[in-house]
């Protein structure tokens, strides 16, 4: 038991997840590569006719997850369990119609897909994620819009929170003020967002923005990336093998 724990600690150290509060930006693998592998794994799982393939991927994912901190595991599994539960309820009529295997297959595929996405979300920051889209040659407009949306969500969220605090400090008297206050917050935030987007576009114009949105200092392909990239042929080989074995 003790030896097992020591072994797990060692693996955690090797995988670079020793810190309880590891930030998303510390990943050593290129975000574009992680995104590609995640996309491929989800696609192959969706295409797979053999449950063994899906089970193997889930097992590998759970093994990887087990090496993470309890906080990370909780954050990752929460949306997964909600999604699986929702899927289970939706697919429940399939059992009464004589297709219990469908319930299991679909639930497993949902579990696998959401698990991969949730891990990706918790280990790659949105900054790196949009960089990954750029590396994968997604349209500049899409990447730019995504970047700006994330930024505005943070700033406007902070702004509406301040108004909410101000309203709650002044909220005395009859209850209907509460609903009126909510409308006011939404309206003010909307107007503020319009003003901010105009100001941002002007600030960009002042810095010679001509529509091209490039990344600064792209990370180079390193040895850990090369090792991680081996997952691509491995996933494809496993998929082909399990489909032929049916």
């Amino acid at each position: 038991m003790n030896m097992n724990l020591q072994l797990m600690r060692l693996i955690r150290r090797i995988t670079g997840n020793d810190s309880e509060y590891q930030t998303a930006d510390q990943s050593r693998i290129l975000p574009a590569l992680r995104l590609s592998v995640a996309f491929l794994a989800i696609l192959l799982c969706a295409l797979s006719q053999n449950a063994i393939y899906v089970i193997m991927i889930i097992a590998a994912e759970l093994l990887w997850l087990s090496m993470k901190s309890p906080i990370f595991i909780r954050k990752t599994l929460k949306p997964v369990l909600i999604a699986v539960l929702f899927c289970f309820v939706l697919m429940l009529p399939a059992v009464s119609m004589g297709h219990p295997r469908t319930l299991l297959t679909v639930s497993m595929k949902v579990f696998e897909s959401v698990l991969i996405l949730s891990q990706l979300e918790n280990s790659v920051s949105w900054q790196n994620m949009t960089d990954a889209f750029r590396t994968l040659h997604c349209p500049q407009l899409f990447v730019f819009t995504l970047d700006m949306t994330m930024r505005f969500l943070v700033i406007l969220g902070r702004y509406s929170n301040s108004i909410l605090e101000a309203v709650s400090l002044r909220r005395v008297g009859p209850d209907h003020w509460k609903t009126a206050g909510t409308g006011g917050i939404l309206g003010t935030t909307f107007l503020r967002s319009q003003k901010m987007s105009l100001e941002t576009s002007e600030a960009m114009a002042c810095r010679c923005f001509d529509g091209e949105y490039r990344s600064y200092r792209r990370r180079r392909f390193s040895r850990p990336d090369a090792l991680y990239a081996l997952l691509i042929p491995l996933l494809i080989a496993l998929f082909v093998y399990t489909q032929q074995a049916m």
């Binding site: 700006m148 100001e199 600030a203 810095r207 923005f209 091209e212 600064y216 200092r217």
Partner: peptide, 29 residues
Amino acid sequence: KQVGFVFQHSEIQLFCKTVEEEIAFGLQQ
């Protein structure tokens, strides 16, 4: 390129993901 403007509310002027990207933005343009 010849006229630089620092806005009163810097928060609006800063739209990149990191400080170094922010500085590089205009130079890339």
